[in-house]
């Protein structure tokens, strides 16, 4: 097996860092830190996109890197920080499953994703195919974060991180989605963020808290 070129090694390092960040998001209970991790994840994503763009010479990837930078590194984290201050939620409650348990499940998920990515990356022709497993792992870990959190705020952060994973996956499998799709997704995320922001205020107004277990009372019957 020939040694990997330097830029590919750099890309793999980015991917590894992304995975590490996902794990730290899984265990992080301070919401402010969670948002910072998200911004960091965005920055890594931006760097990885730039690397791939430079390596493959695909012009549109520069644009999506810029988009990532504007939206995921600067825009959304700022918005989230403002929301945190306005809503005054700094800490998530005790997670549904304790942290070490969550981490163990996360490990299993990573193993599963790598197994899943194996046949796909064997078929893919991109230089970045080896990172596909990590992309899937990031998606599933973010999903896991959403499941284990109680505060709506952290669920939204996890949701955005999942979007990052998807983006990374698309890039490693096919050098990114078509520009139109990418723009659409970016817009979607922005709109979702705004709508969710409104929801936060509504939920707090109704239940005096952002803790989602209050929503259980909305269930039908009994």
């Amino acid at each position: 097996m020939s040694p990997l070129s330097f830029d590919l090694q750099l890309l793999n390092a980015c991917a590894a860092l992304l995975l590490l960040l996902s794990f730290s998001m899984l265990s992080q209970r301070r919401i402010v830190n969670l948002v910072n991790l998200l911004a960091l994840q965005g920055a890594l994503l931006c760097a990885a996109t730039l690397l791939v763009a430079w390596r493959t010479g695909q012009g549109h990837l520069y644009l999506s890197a810029a988009l990532t930078l504007a939206l995921k590194v600067i825009g959304l984290p700022l918005l989230l920080h403002r929301l945190i201050r306005r809503l005054n939620v700094y800490w998530d409650a005790e997670p549904v499953i304790n942290t070490s348990g969550t981490m163990l499940i996360g490990l299993l998920v990573v193993v599963f994703s790598f197994g899943l990515a194996q046949p796909i990356s064997a078929l893919a022709s991109t230089a970045t195919r080896s990172t596909l497993g990590i992309a899937i792992a990031v998606i599933l870990l973010s999903f896991l974060t959403m499941i284990t959190r109680r505060k709506a705020m952290s669920q939204v952060v996890a949701f955005l991180s999942m979007e990052n994973g998807l983006f990374f996956g698309a890039m490693s499998a096919t050098y990114g989605m078509p520009m139109v799709v990418e723009l659409g997704v970016a817009l979607d995320v922005l709109v979702a963020m705004l709508v969710l922001g409104v929801f936060f205020f509504q939920i707090r107004e109704q239940f005096d808290s952002l803790d989602l277990h209050h929503l259980e009372s909305l269930k039908e019957g009994e």
């Binding site: 599963f112 599933l140 999903f143 989602l212």
Partner: peptide, 28 residues
């Protein structure tokens, strides 16, 4: 069947998660 409806978002997310994993495992 109504027991599926727990009223907890985490549970609903878990349903999606398990479905996703199961489907992925199926194509594997």
């Amino acid at each position: 069947v109504a027991r599926l409806q727990q009223g907890r978002i985490a549970t609903y997310l878990l349903y999606s998660f398990v479905t996703l994993i199961a489907l992925l495992a199926l194509v594997l």
